[in-house]
Simulated scan of single mutants.
Amino acid sequence: MASIVCFGEMLIDFVPDTAGVSLAESQGFLKAPGGAPANVACAITKLGGSSAFIGKVGKDEFGYMLADILKKNGVNADGVLFDEHARTALAFVTLKKNGEREFMFYRNPSADMLLKESELNMDLIKNAKIFHYGSISLITEPCRSAHMAAMKTAKQAGVLLSYDPNVRLPLWPSPEAARHGIMSIWNEADFIKVSDDEVAFLTQKDADSEEAVKSLWRDHFKLMVVTDGEKGCRYYTKAKILIIATIFIKIPEKTNQIFSSIIVIATTTGEEKTLSSSPIPDLQTRYSDLKTRSSDLKIIISLSLSSLKKKTY
């Protein structure tokens, strides 16, 4: 059984074939697999861990492609379902020259939104060490109920819960609904990974303020990491707070999902790993060859931080 089970959305990203342009300005788009939980699952296997993915895609060519990519990356796909009545989700995304991200989603509804509690592979969840998820699966029913049931099952089985909210405001009815929905399950997690932008959004305070960050801390948390873009990150445990500066290395743009996978795998293995390639095969940017020991969380985190502002879905 997989040590880490990732739950949520898996979709197709379409990114402009020219960097820095808006979606309207782009003359063409490149297809790439996406979805934060699926990215994490693939990154975990690249780091030498064992992972599984639970989610739903359309019974279409894109859905088959995504399931095949999971398998090629060594991810257990027993929890992947195919919906006959809804398509695989699509997202058009770009990072403009001014640093602003632009999204356009096609999911009205998409297959991932239609996952039901009765369709969950509970054995995968019960036998995991860590259950990892985001917040997009909380937006609509029936997926929200499936998400809540999966968390409950994991908790009752003694599985640790890992939460990366991965805020995507265009998908929520309103910013207020997003804030409420994301925080509705905050207290259930054992591990939290949140960006500085998300701290500001969730607390409505300055993300550099320790008061803002500490308002998100809960006494039962084992670890909370705040990523600060090019500045590095802050990580919090019961015992200490540590600020880690960035080590500038060449890393893929989907750093937030890779970062999440590094955090969760650090809790399950102490073996030496080499970070050598991006988690999804379509991403051509490669890591510098770096060796690290995954039992040393401080070093692992520091190797993951140089491009966190360049976020894609």
Rank of each mutant, 00 (worst) to 15 (best):
E100Q: 11
D78R: 15
L120F: 12
E84N: 14
K152I: 02
R107G: 08
T140A: 12
D123H: 13
L124A: 07
Y133L: 04
G99E: 01
H147G: 00
V93W: 10
C143S: 12
H147E: 05
V93T: 12
S162F: 01
F105T: 03
A89Y: 00
E102M: 02
P165Y: 03
I139E: 05
S162R: 00
H132K: 01
R168T: 09
K155V: 01
K97L: 07
A111S: 10
S118G: 06
F131Y: 07
G79M: 15
V93I: 15
T88G: 09
L114D: 01
F131Q: 01
A128R: 00
D78T: 15
K96V: 04
L70R: 11
K71W: 03
V159T: 03
A154M: 00
A154L: 00
L160Y: 03
S118V: 11
D78S: 15
I130Y: 04
S135A: 13
Y163T: 02
E102L: 02
N127H: 09
V80E: 09
R87T: 11
Y133E: 00
G74V: 12
K96N: 09
A154N: 02
M151F: 00
L124G: 08
R107P: 08
L138G: 06
N127S: 13
K72P: 03
G79W: 15
C143P: 03
V75D: 08
R107S: 10
M122C: 10
I130P: 01
L120E: 07
A157N: 01
Y133A: 01
H85E: 14
M113I: 12
L161H: 00
R101G: 02
A146K: 04
F92Y: 14
L160S: 04
Y133K: 00
A146M: 09
I136W: 08
N127V: 05
L81T: 15
Y163P: 02
P170W: 12
L70Q: 08
F82E: 02
K71E: 14
A157P: 03
P170M: 11
G74W: 14
P170T: 11
L115Y: 07
L160G: 01
I139R: 10
